[in-house]
Protein backbone atom coordinates (compact mmCIF):
# COMPACT_ATOMS: atom_id res chain seq x y z
CA UNK A 1 0.00 0.00 0.00
CA UNK A 2 2.69 2.42 0.98
CA UNK A 3 4.13 3.23 -2.37
CA UNK A 4 5.60 6.62 -1.42
CA UNK A 5 9.28 7.39 -1.84
CA UNK A 6 11.65 8.16 1.01
CA UNK A 7 13.58 11.39 0.52
CA UNK A 8 16.81 12.45 2.18
CA UNK A 9 18.20 15.98 2.07
CA UNK A 10 21.91 16.02 3.00
CA UNK A 11 23.45 19.48 3.40
CA UNK A 12 21.35 20.81 0.53
CA UNK A 13 22.25 24.29 -0.65
CA UNK A 14 20.69 26.22 -3.47
CA UNK A 15 21.90 29.48 -4.92
CA UNK A 16 20.43 30.97 -8.07
CA UNK A 17 22.88 31.99 -10.79
CA UNK A 18 24.02 35.56 -10.29
CA UNK A 19 22.87 35.68 -6.66
CA UNK A 20 25.23 36.50 -3.79
CA UNK A 21 23.42 34.46 -1.16
CA UNK A 22 22.10 30.94 -0.78
CA UNK A 23 18.32 30.73 -1.07
CA UNK A 24 18.66 27.42 0.78
CA UNK A 25 21.71 27.19 2.99
CA UNK A 26 22.41 23.67 4.19
CA UNK A 27 19.30 21.61 4.86
CA UNK A 28 19.41 18.15 6.41
CA UNK A 29 16.10 16.36 6.49
CA UNK A 30 14.81 12.82 6.27
CA UNK A 31 11.32 12.30 4.90
CA UNK A 32 9.74 8.93 5.59
CA UNK A 33 8.00 7.08 2.77
CA UNK A 34 4.33 8.02 2.56
CA UNK A 35 4.49 10.93 4.98
CA UNK A 36 3.00 14.37 4.54
CA UNK A 37 5.50 17.16 5.16
CA UNK A 38 4.76 20.87 5.09
CA UNK A 39 7.40 23.55 4.57
CA UNK A 40 6.24 26.65 6.37
CA UNK A 41 7.73 30.09 6.92
CA UNK A 42 7.51 33.71 5.81
CA UNK A 43 8.13 34.94 2.25
CA UNK A 44 11.74 34.59 1.28
CA UNK A 45 12.50 31.87 3.84
CA UNK A 46 13.49 29.44 1.09
CA UNK A 47 10.55 27.04 1.37
CA UNK A 48 9.64 27.18 -2.32
CA UNK A 49 13.28 26.89 -3.40
CA UNK A 50 13.77 23.89 -1.11
CA UNK A 51 10.72 22.22 -2.68
CA UNK A 52 12.05 22.97 -6.16
CA UNK A 53 15.43 21.41 -5.45
CA UNK A 54 13.62 18.07 -5.27
CA UNK A 55 12.64 18.08 -8.95
CA UNK A 56 15.62 20.29 -9.77
CA UNK A 57 13.65 23.29 -10.93
CA UNK A 58 15.99 25.04 -8.48
CA UNK A 59 19.71 24.23 -8.71
CA UNK A 60 21.38 22.11 -6.06
CA UNK A 61 24.65 23.94 -5.49
CA UNK A 62 25.78 21.94 -2.47
CA UNK A 63 24.93 18.65 -0.76
CA UNK A 64 22.60 16.14 -2.34
CA UNK A 65 19.06 14.80 -2.37
CA UNK A 66 18.40 11.08 -2.42
CA UNK A 67 15.06 9.65 -3.46
CA UNK A 68 14.82 6.03 -2.35
CA UNK A 69 18.57 6.07 -1.87
CA UNK A 70 19.38 7.32 -5.36
CA UNK A 71 21.22 10.62 -5.67
CA UNK A 72 18.99 12.76 -7.91
CA UNK A 73 22.06 14.38 -9.50
CA UNK A 74 22.65 11.07 -11.29
CA UNK A 75 19.15 11.08 -12.86
CA UNK A 76 17.94 12.76 -16.04
CA UNK A 77 15.95 15.77 -14.80
CA UNK A 78 13.16 15.40 -17.36
CA UNK A 79 12.57 11.70 -16.64
CA UNK A 80 12.79 12.36 -12.92
CA UNK A 81 10.22 15.16 -13.08
CA UNK A 82 7.76 12.86 -14.85
CA UNK A 83 8.00 10.49 -11.90
CA UNK A 84 7.29 13.30 -9.41
CA UNK A 85 3.88 14.93 -9.16
CA UNK A 86 3.87 18.72 -9.26
CA UNK A 87 1.05 21.10 -8.48
CA UNK A 88 1.09 24.86 -8.09
CA UNK A 89 -1.61 27.51 -7.91
CA UNK A 90 -4.51 27.25 -10.35
CA UNK A 91 -2.72 29.34 -12.96
CA UNK A 92 -0.62 26.25 -13.62
CA UNK A 93 -3.39 24.59 -15.67
CA UNK A 94 -2.82 24.86 -19.41
CA UNK A 95 -5.55 27.25 -20.62
CA UNK A 96 -5.55 25.92 -24.18
CA UNK A 97 -6.20 22.32 -23.11
CA UNK A 98 -9.40 20.76 -21.80
CA UNK A 99 -9.58 19.43 -18.26
CA UNK A 100 -9.07 15.90 -19.59
CA UNK A 101 -6.03 16.94 -21.64
CA UNK A 102 -4.55 18.68 -18.63
CA UNK A 103 -4.88 15.58 -16.49
CA UNK A 104 -3.42 13.51 -19.33
CA UNK A 105 -0.27 15.61 -19.75
CA UNK A 106 2.27 13.37 -18.05
CA UNK A 107 0.80 10.04 -19.27
CA UNK A 108 0.83 11.55 -22.78
CA UNK A 109 4.47 12.61 -22.45
CA UNK A 110 5.25 9.13 -21.18
CA UNK A 111 3.47 7.67 -24.25
CA UNK A 112 0.80 5.61 -22.53
CA UNK A 113 -1.73 4.15 -24.94
CA UNK A 114 -4.87 6.12 -25.73
CA UNK A 115 -7.16 3.78 -23.83
CA UNK A 116 -4.87 3.69 -20.78
CA UNK A 117 -4.81 7.48 -20.73
CA UNK A 118 -8.56 7.78 -21.18
CA UNK A 119 -9.41 5.43 -18.34
CA UNK A 120 -6.77 6.99 -16.11
CA UNK A 121 -8.21 10.48 -16.70
CA UNK A 122 -11.67 9.28 -15.63
CA UNK A 123 -10.22 7.52 -12.62
CA UNK A 124 -8.31 10.64 -11.54
CA UNK A 125 -11.29 12.96 -11.99
CA UNK A 126 -13.38 10.63 -9.88
CA UNK A 127 -10.64 10.57 -7.26
CA UNK A 128 -10.86 14.36 -6.92
CA UNK A 129 -14.68 14.20 -7.04
CA UNK A 130 -15.28 15.78 -10.43
CA UNK A 131 -17.76 13.90 -12.61
CA UNK A 132 -15.72 12.92 -15.70
CA UNK A 133 -18.73 13.17 -18.03
CA UNK A 134 -19.34 16.74 -16.95
CA UNK A 135 -15.81 18.03 -16.55
CA UNK A 136 -13.56 16.19 -19.02
CA UNK A 137 -14.17 18.51 -21.95
CA UNK A 138 -14.38 21.77 -20.05
CA UNK A 139 -11.75 24.46 -20.35
CA UNK A 140 -9.88 25.68 -17.26
CA UNK A 141 -11.54 29.07 -17.71
CA UNK A 142 -14.91 27.40 -17.12
CA UNK A 143 -13.90 26.10 -13.69
CA UNK A 144 -14.22 27.64 -10.25
CA UNK A 145 -11.00 28.11 -8.28
CA UNK A 146 -11.67 24.99 -6.23
CA UNK A 147 -12.46 22.88 -9.29
CA UNK A 148 -9.31 24.11 -11.04
CA UNK A 149 -7.23 23.09 -8.06
CA UNK A 150 -8.84 19.64 -7.99
CA UNK A 151 -7.82 19.27 -11.62
CA UNK A 152 -4.30 20.35 -10.62
CA UNK A 153 -4.19 17.58 -8.02
CA UNK A 154 -5.55 15.02 -10.50
CA UNK A 155 -2.94 16.06 -13.05
CA UNK A 156 -0.12 15.84 -10.51
CA UNK A 157 -1.13 12.31 -9.49
CA UNK A 158 -2.07 10.96 -12.93
CA UNK A 159 1.15 9.09 -13.67
CA UNK A 160 1.22 7.41 -10.24
CA UNK A 161 4.13 9.41 -8.84
CA UNK A 162 5.67 8.19 -5.60
CA UNK A 163 6.44 11.77 -4.61
CA UNK A 164 4.11 14.76 -4.82
CA UNK A 165 5.34 18.36 -4.65
CA UNK A 166 2.81 21.12 -4.00
CA UNK A 167 3.59 24.82 -3.89
CA UNK A 168 0.84 26.84 -2.20
CA UNK A 169 -1.73 24.97 -4.26
CA UNK A 170 -4.67 26.41 -2.33
CA UNK A 171 -3.24 29.92 -2.00
CA UNK A 172 -5.82 31.58 -4.22
CA UNK A 173 -8.91 29.94 -2.71
CA UNK A 174 -11.35 31.28 -0.16
CA UNK A 175 -11.24 29.88 3.35
CA UNK A 176 -14.20 27.50 3.05
CA UNK A 177 -13.15 25.86 -0.22
CA UNK A 178 -9.62 25.74 1.12
CA UNK A 179 -10.65 23.75 4.20
CA UNK A 180 -12.67 21.38 2.07
CA UNK A 181 -9.77 20.73 -0.30
CA UNK A 182 -7.28 20.32 2.52
CA UNK A 183 -9.38 17.56 4.02
CA UNK A 184 -9.83 15.86 0.66
CA UNK A 185 -6.16 16.16 -0.27
CA UNK A 186 -5.11 14.58 2.99
CA UNK A 187 -7.47 11.69 2.33
CA UNK A 188 -6.42 11.29 -1.31
CA UNK A 189 -2.69 11.18 -0.70
CA UNK A 190 -3.22 8.81 2.21
CA UNK A 191 -5.21 6.50 -0.08
CA UNK A 192 -2.55 6.47 -2.80
CA UNK A 193 0.32 6.45 -0.32
CA UNK A 194 2.34 9.18 -2.03
CA UNK A 195 5.02 11.02 -0.10
CA UNK A 196 3.94 14.66 -0.13
CA UNK A 197 5.97 17.84 0.29
CA UNK A 198 3.70 20.85 0.62
CA UNK A 199 4.75 24.50 0.77
CA UNK A 200 2.52 27.00 2.54
CA UNK A 201 2.82 30.27 4.42
CA UNK A 202 -0.43 29.48 6.25
CA UNK A 203 0.44 27.92 9.60
CA UNK A 204 -3.13 26.74 10.12
CA UNK A 205 -2.97 24.85 6.84
CA UNK A 206 0.35 23.29 7.77
CA UNK A 207 -1.06 22.13 11.12
CA UNK A 208 -4.11 20.54 9.49
CA UNK A 209 -2.18 18.70 6.81
CA UNK A 210 1.22 17.73 8.12
CA UNK A 211 2.59 14.61 9.70
CA UNK A 212 5.71 16.69 10.16
CA UNK A 213 6.16 20.43 9.85
CA UNK A 214 9.44 21.94 8.71
CA UNK A 215 9.77 25.59 9.75
CA UNK A 216 12.18 27.52 7.58
CA UNK A 217 13.87 30.86 8.12
CA UNK A 218 16.55 32.47 5.97
CA UNK A 219 17.12 29.28 4.01
CA UNK A 220 17.70 26.95 6.93
CA UNK A 221 15.53 24.76 9.11
CA UNK A 222 14.48 26.54 12.27
CA UNK A 223 12.64 23.52 13.65
CA UNK A 224 11.10 20.34 12.36
CA UNK A 225 8.70 18.06 14.16
CA UNK A 226 5.13 16.88 14.43
CA UNK A 227 2.47 19.60 14.72
CA UNK A 228 2.07 18.78 18.40
CA UNK A 229 5.79 18.99 19.12
CA UNK A 230 6.06 22.33 17.39
CA UNK A 231 3.05 23.77 19.15
CA UNK A 232 4.02 22.46 22.55
CA UNK A 233 7.74 23.08 22.34
CA UNK A 234 8.65 25.83 19.90
CA UNK A 235 12.41 25.78 19.91
CA UNK A 236 12.97 29.44 19.16
CA UNK A 237 11.07 32.71 19.62
CA UNK A 238 10.68 32.82 15.83
CA UNK A 239 8.76 29.54 15.78
CA UNK A 240 6.70 30.56 18.79
CA UNK A 241 5.72 33.84 17.14
CA UNK A 242 5.00 32.27 13.77
CA UNK A 243 2.54 29.85 15.33
CA UNK A 244 1.06 32.42 17.71
CA UNK A 245 -0.13 34.75 14.95
CA UNK A 246 -3.42 32.94 14.58
CA UNK A 247 -5.71 32.99 17.64
CA UNK A 248 -7.14 29.60 16.68
CA UNK A 249 -3.61 28.27 16.65
CA UNK A 250 -2.94 29.75 20.08
CA UNK A 251 -5.97 27.89 21.48
CA UNK A 252 -4.82 24.68 19.81
CA UNK A 253 -1.40 25.14 21.33
CA UNK A 254 -2.80 25.59 24.82
CA UNK A 255 -4.83 22.43 24.34
CA UNK A 256 -1.73 20.61 23.10
CA UNK A 257 0.22 21.74 26.19
CA UNK A 258 -2.43 20.41 28.53
CA UNK A 259 -2.47 17.09 26.68
CA UNK A 260 1.31 16.80 26.39
Amino acid sequence: MNHGASITFAGVRSRYPGSEIDAVGGVDLTVDAGSFITFVGPSGCGKTTLLRTVNRLAPITGGRIEIDGIDTATLDPVAMRRSIGYAIQAIGLFPHMSVGENVAVVPTLARWTRSEISSRVDEMLELVRLDPARYRNRRPSQLSGGEAQRVGVARALAARPRTLLMDEPFGALDAIVRRELQAELKQIVASVGTTTLFVTHDVGESLRLADRIVVLKDGTIEQSGTPLEILAHPRTPFVRELFAEDPAVARLRDAARTNA
Binding site: L57, R82, I88, V106
Partner: peptide, 20 residues
Protein backbone atom coordinates in the same frame (compact mmCIF):
# COMPACT_ATOMS: atom_id res chain seq x y z
CA UNK B 1 3.21 29.82 -13.84
CA UNK B 2 2.05 27.91 -16.90
CA UNK B 3 5.65 27.46 -18.05
CA UNK B 4 6.73 26.41 -14.57
CA UNK B 5 3.99 23.78 -14.47
CA UNK B 6 5.08 22.42 -17.84
CA UNK B 7 8.70 22.18 -16.79
CA UNK B 8 7.80 20.72 -13.41
CA UNK B 9 5.66 18.04 -15.03
CA UNK B 10 8.67 16.95 -17.06
CA UNK B 11 8.39 18.59 -20.47
CA UNK B 12 11.60 19.01 -22.42
CA UNK B 13 12.31 22.48 -23.82
CA UNK B 14 11.01 21.28 -27.18
CA UNK B 15 7.82 19.74 -25.76
CA UNK B 16 7.20 22.94 -23.82
CA UNK B 17 7.59 24.97 -27.02
CA UNK B 18 5.36 22.76 -29.17
CA UNK B 19 2.70 21.84 -26.61
CA UNK B 20 2.47 24.99 -24.53
Amino acid sequence: GTLDAGRGLGMTARELLVRV
